[in-house]
Amino acid sequence: MMNKTKYFERGKASLKALLFLPLAFGAHAERLPSQPQISTEGEGSGFSLTACTRCHGVGGDGNTAEGIPRLRGLPFTYLKEQLQAFASGERQNPIMNSIARTLSADDITHAASFYTQLPPLFQPLGTKDESTNELAVHGRWSENIPPCDDCHGPEGKGVGENFPALNGQSARYLENQLQAFKKGSRPSGPLNLMGNIAKKLSDADIQTLSRYYSGSSPRDTGGQP
């Protein structure tokens, strides 16, 4: 097991340094992070998180309109596995693939540790309308689709190291990921659970679920790609 305290302290130190980053990088904000700033800060394998924070934010909130995921409070194991999958190309995203390939194993551990120790931020789910949260709360057992909440927890707040929170992500990100599971452009997760389930979901199912967990009302179509 990793030493959480150590990473937490290091995370705080990095956080202070990062407060100045918007000034330093503001001029280049429109540029994609083709040259991630991963540097050694002198002690240990100190790792600047600039490459991550430029898109995911210092607070790990991501970007709703762009569909960039919120990372704060996500499980360490999950974050680490995703970075490894980006590095290997199993999870496909041009920006993340190019960044992850430059990361050392220590960098990956450091980045995952940094975001996992930030407190998660949940939002009230938009609607209690039974027709919109049907799959999330009741599943569709006639097709062996369990409720999402059965593994991701009530209101999708996440369970343990392998079932990340859905609550808090944008509709656009969630929709992209369910489609990616369906197409196989990201690893299908432990026991192939998500690959197996996503293949049974229609586009309409995916849109409904994505809006539900993002807290959007069913009629709010903003931000859909």
């Binding site: 409070g73 593994c151 991701h152 927890g153 209101e155 707040k157 369970v159 343990g160």
Partner: peptide, 11 residues
């Protein structure tokens, strides 16, 4: 078993 963020038993 496992407990969700927020305290509910899930598994």
């Amino acid at each position: 078993g496992r407990i969700a963020n927020g305290g509910h038993l899930v598994f």
